[in-house]
């Protein structure tokens, strides 16, 4: 719509008789703007087409969820299996994981970035090396370790292994290093404790990167699937993604219910994304380039 209107507008100056004095440069200017407008219109045409392709599955999801029964599909899906429980589980896991990541990462990154001690670079390398290995590679031995700890099918299995995140440590360390070390040394000489310096100086100067870490970890924790699928069995411990995947298998012919469940499962993150989209997009692109 938008594209077509812009294009129609673009033709007007070309076909109209010249209104401006009639110098050659004036005519050129008009043709130039007409071309520019046509080009912009063409751009919007393709961009809208692209946007349509990206949005269509979401529109179909919501559309189908409201077929035959409308909103009652949502109620039925919600009550057929304990989605409320799945939501609370996901929320609990996400909150604790993200909180844990923030605490452990800020502490570790602060130590790596500002303090000098033996073995520091080796330890940092040890951390980084784990980033090279993707999760599927060590999934089976992780299960064995959890089994030895007696943690299979517990909240601990969903939370504890994820309360440290090397990528977050890396991002925070990079930022902490930009804070002048002389400031730190002066504060320590003045008798300021290290923890107090972290709390009073470093963290307030790092709000932006902390929010990036926060958003990253909320998204990845909320969406994580393979791990909770493996380490929990009972329905009481299911997180949303696992619950939705089982629901998909059990109700495979009940499309309205499946789409309703998909809609309410994705809604919280979509809302979060729309609320913080600028920052999320920027974080993804920036960290992507840095990594």
């Amino acid at each position: 719509m938008w594209g077509r209107r812009a294009r129609a507008g673009g033709h007007v100056p070309v076909t109209c008789p010249r209104k401006t004095g009639g110098t050659d440069s004036g005519k050129n200017g008009l043709i130039m703007t007409a071309r520019a407008i046509a080009r912009t219109a063409a751009k919007h045409f393709f961009l809208i087409l692209g946007g349509f392709v990206m949005l269509l599955p979401f529109l179909w999801m919501v559309g189908t969820s409201l077929e035959q029964g409308g909103f009652s599909n949502y109620v039925e899906a919600w009550t057929k299996v304990p989605f409320g429980r799945y939501f609370l589980n996901t929320l609990l896991v996400t909150v604790l994981v993200v909180f844990g990541v923030l605490v452990t990462s800020c502490l570790a990154a602060y130590s790596f970035a500002t303090m000098k001690y033996r073995g520091r670079d080796m330890l940092f390398l040890l951390f980084l090396s784990t980033m090279m290995v993707p999760q599927p590679v060590y999934l089976a031995p992780s299960y064995v370790i959890l089994a030895k700890l007696g943690w299979i099918n517990t909240y601990a299995a969903l939370i504890v292994p994820w309360v440290a995140n090397v990528f977050s440590i890396f991002l925070l360390r990079q930022h902490f290093r930009t804070i002048p070390i002389s400031l730190y040394e002066a504060a320590i000489l003045d008798g300021c404790s290290r923890l107090k310096y972290l709390w009073k100086v470093v963290l307030p100067l790092s709000k932006s990167v902390i929010i990036t870490v926060l958003l990253f970890n909320i998204i990845s924790s909320w969406n994580s699937f393979m791990w909770p699928l493996v380490v929990t069995h009972s329905e009481e411990l299911r997180v949303l993604q696992v619950g939705l995947s089982y629901f998909n298998q059990e109700q495979s012919s009940n499309h309205q219910l499946l789409m309703a469940a998909s809609t309410f499962s994705t809604l919280p993150l979509i809302v979060l994304f729309l609320a913080a989209q600028k920052r999320i997009v920027a974080s993804y692109s920036r960290s992507g380039i840095k990594d």
Binding site: P57, L244, A261
Partner: peptide, 8 residues
């Protein structure tokens, strides 16, 4: 989430 997208 990949799961929701897959269901859809």
């Amino acid at each position: 989430s990949a799961v929701a997208i897959s269901v859809v």
